[in-house]
Amino acid sequence: MSEAPFIEAAEIAPGHDGAAELVLFVRYPGAGRQTVTLDADAAEVLFEHTQTGDVSALHGVPWHHLKDVLQQRPGSGAAGGNG
């Protein structure tokens, strides 16, 4: 078992604002699981990083690694989506 949290699954889902969004399922050591939802701009950053447009390429990737990538993008402190 991995020592660090990793992406167990990634799916495209419909968002509240009528756009598609990327849902990451993060598996933590000790069996904890969390979902992280990203809009198209944030997902684009990940796809740029993984050099692919395929969600399956995110499977198994360490979560901290992706989090670092996301936090380095411009405006990353303003994550949120309008309700």
């Binding site: 509240h16 756009a19 198209a40 395929d54």
Partner: peptide, 25 residues
């Protein structure tokens, strides 16, 4: 919930289709 899209912007709707998503970007 409905999802709207055009070919102008890369919708994540195509993210499961690598060739399409590459084209959209």
């Amino acid at each position: 919930i409905d999802i709207s899209f055009t070919f102008e912007v890369a919708s994540l709707l195509f993210a499961g289709l690598p060739k399409w998503y590459r084209t959209m970007r």
